[in-house]
Nucleic acid binder design. Structure first.
Lengths: 197, 197
DNA sequence: CGCCGGATATGACTTCAATCATATAATATA
DNA sequence: TATATTATATGATTGAAGTCATATCCGGCG
């Protein structure tokens, strides 16, 4: 989201991460602005009985965990490498300076937050108004859109059922069963396990 | 959030609203920046079987429906006066100009969005990780905090059970039953129907 | 090609929130 | 103060998602 050269100019440093490596924990005090250079990072909550809830998955070029840099709160979720990845980070101070110095970057950052709020609103509407199929469909549509899929075109979902479950707050079996029903209703296509919609 | 005088200078106009009057519908194209002057406004989704989900309730001084002014999307939820209220509005263009002209306003606006994202993250974590009591407790804690209640002090919840249900995606009866259980567990107090926590 | 591990699939059973009905308490209004 | 109206409360029943067990499929790799 912010140019890599600019981040480097502001003292940015790279970090290589192996799959499942922790970047920060839920409850940690936020000290850095992070951006994905390669691979992907997920932000997650783990509840009392070990179940994982995925707040979001961030891919190359996307920043994560920034909202708390602007308000005085600890991280509401932890960050973990979703696969072998590379991230770049600058200090919180640096980030706040960048916002002040470059109004155009500030504006596009505001737009990113607005877009995320919009997505969260769409999701929570479906999550609250019960029905696993609604939840899953809402998620798939969101994924489709954010991956820049032009409307109408078939789109290959690259997440395993388990991660779809972790993002919707459902169980794997429920996701599998619901998706089978959705296939019968022609809402999605499943070819050798892979999902298209 | 933005000074009233400033809004007036930028062509702001007031609108009186009676309880349940619609300000805009889900799916409408956003044209104005709105701010509550008096009373309160709720943003809601109505699902297929008429059930209401409350995305948020906005009180005096708070703005609502602004995120979509920054991204090219229709409203993900409608806005309705929660009681007899007054709002002030300026055009989308005007709002975007204000952000550009007043960097300090822009920054505090970004902080508002960040805070909302933070709240949504806390809520969706609990909503997804099932269990009505968790959901309700998360909501109550959020309300407590955003109403500036210093930690530890008892706080009177001013929402009827129905609205708590509409905000958590549960049914009234479930909210009532869960709250009774929470009372027994000394998580909250109930005195003649009123909830304190 | 055949083996192995992880993902997907399916069945049987249980649990808990939704639903529907109805009662009681609290509050506004005459 | 009496009455209407809304909010809160509680019981009985039902249905859908969770849980646990087990089977099958798919892709990678020797």
């Amino acid at each position: 989201m912010i140019q890599q050269e600019l981040l480097i100019a502001w003292g940015g440093t790279f970090r290589k991460l192996h799959k499942d490596q922790v970047i920060f924990f839920e409850g940690d005090k936020p000290l850095y602005y992070y951006q994905v250079v390669e691979g992907s990072v997920k932000m997650i909550n783990i509840n009392d009985d070990g179940k994982e809830f995925i707040q979001g998955i961030f891919k190359t070029g996307e920043s994560f965990g920034e909202p708390v840099l602007l308000i005085d709160e600890p991280y509401p979720a932890g960050a973990v490498a979703n696969e072998d990845s590379v991230v770049i980070r600058i200090t919180k101070q640096g980030f706040l300076c960048v916002l002040k110095e470059y109004p155009d970057i500030h504006l596009s950052f505001t737009q990113v937050l607005a877009q995320r709020l919009y997505n969260k609103a769409l999701m929570s509407k479906e999550i609250a108004s019960h029905g696993p199929e609604h939840r899953i469909l809402a998620l798939l549509n969101m994924l489709k859109k954010t991956n820049g899929c032009v409307n109408g075109k078939k789109f290959r979902i690259n997440f395993p059922r388990q991660q779809i479950a972790d993002m919707t707050g459902l169980r794997v079996e429920t996701v599998i069963r619901s998706m089978k029903k959705m296939e019968k209703k022609k809402l999605i296509e499943i070819k050798s396990g892979k999902v298209y919609c």
